[in-house]
């Protein structure tokens, strides 16, 4: 094959063929981690406040067993919130992505590590998604759809908006991408 001769698959920053294991992974935006912490804190605080109101309100009498539940929930909830915050902090620390010439990888997981690699040639279409909070923080989620089905949509959360746009551009301009479209 003549194509094989001039084939290379280097990481974008360096110049040699890089195996997946040696990829230099880039972390997600720091703002993404902070945003998740913030959302977590707000959700748990609101829940806790609702419970506190139940506890303090003078208008109706709660049944005795319900009162017990509320009492225990009042100290359990902050602990749960704290644990979740800790988990999210570490989970987000373990979320990375890496670009090579022909594919994009995303790795995540603290105990169960998982790395998904999506070849750019097989990308059918791309979506950039932003929720209201992400928009405020100038963050974006990048979704790459392949023919592997909805279950196997490749998603990188928590990218800087400009970064996400650059990756989208990279995928769109890839010389082999969307070649099926042309046939």
């Amino acid at each position: 094959m003549s194509i094989a001769g001039d084939f290379s698959n280097t990481q974008l920053s360096s110049e040699q063929l890089t195996p997946l294991v040696a990829l230099q992974l880039e972390p997600l935006a720091r703002r993404y981690r902070l945003l998740r912490q913030g959302v977590n804190a707000v959700v748990f605080s609101v829940l806790w406040l609702i419970l506190l109101l139940q506890w303090l309100q003078p208008w109706w009498e709660l049944p005795a067993n319900m009162l017990q539940v509320v009492k225990h929930a009042l100290w359990l909830l902050p602990i749960l919130g704290g644990l979740r915050a800790l988990y999210c902090w570490h989970a987000d620390k373990h979320k990375h992505f890496a670009l090579r010439e022909h594919d994009i990888s995303y790795s995540s997981g603290i105990f169960f590590r998982k790395m998904i690699t999506q070849p750019v040639v097989r990308v059918q279409h791309i979506e950039l998604k932003q929720g209201p909070l992400e928009r405020k923080a100038a963050l974006a989620r990048l979704q790459l759809f392949s023919a592997g089905g909805a279950l196997h949509t490749f998603e990188i959360p928590g990218l800087h908006l400009t970064q996400a746009q650059q990756i989208r551009q990279f995928v769109l301009q890839h010389k082999d991408a969307l070649q099926d479209e042309q046939q």
């Binding site: 997946l20 105990f111 169960f112 590590r113 998982k114 790395m115 998904i116 690699t117 999506q118 070849p119 097989r122 392949s146 023919a147 592997g148 089905g149 279950l151 196997h152 490749f154």
Partner: peptide, 29 residues
Amino acid sequence: KLQQVQFKQSWLMRRSGLCSVKLVMASGA
């Protein structure tokens, strides 16, 4: 014909040098 590949490893599997892989095709994974 591959569409996507996945590499998975739990903490215990990493210690014993094992992994699971998933090959995603258009007809299934």
